[in-house]
């Protein structure tokens, strides 16, 4: 391969590298966030969300947090639907 062709390969590679480095990632950059703890209070009575016959409604006043019926997942189970 001649010097000119070598140069062409090198310059192509350089362009490709720049494009790869500058390309926007789908979904944006990954932000590193530390572990955190959060809780949802009942908007009706202000009580903390406690487990009593399920999690989908307030253990104290019966306020419905969500209408969705939960199915079995890794940590959320069907038993978490309030009765």
């Amino acid at each position: 391969m001649s010097d000119e062709e070598k140069k062409r390969a090198q310059s192509y590679l350089e362009k490709l590298k720049q494009t790869a480095l500058q390309q926007q990632h789908y979904g944006g950059e990954i932000k590193q966030t530390p572990a955190s703890m959060d809780a949802r209070d009942c908007p009706n009575c202000g009580a903390g969300r406690a487990f009593r016959h399920g999690l989908t409604s307030c253990a104290y006043c019966g306020f419905v947090f969500m209408d969705t019926t939960l199915t079995d997942g890794i940590y959320i189970k069907k038993e978490n639907n309030s009765k």
Binding site: A35, S36, M37, R40, G48, R49, F51
Partner: peptide
């Protein structure tokens, strides 16, 4: 992944979100 963790004192279900 995010999960519920019960408070041993008031039984509130806290949501624990692990770090990235």
């Amino acid at each position: 992944i995010a999960t519920y963790v019960s408070c041993p004192f008031c039984q509130t279900q806290n949501t624990f979100l692990p770090s990235t």
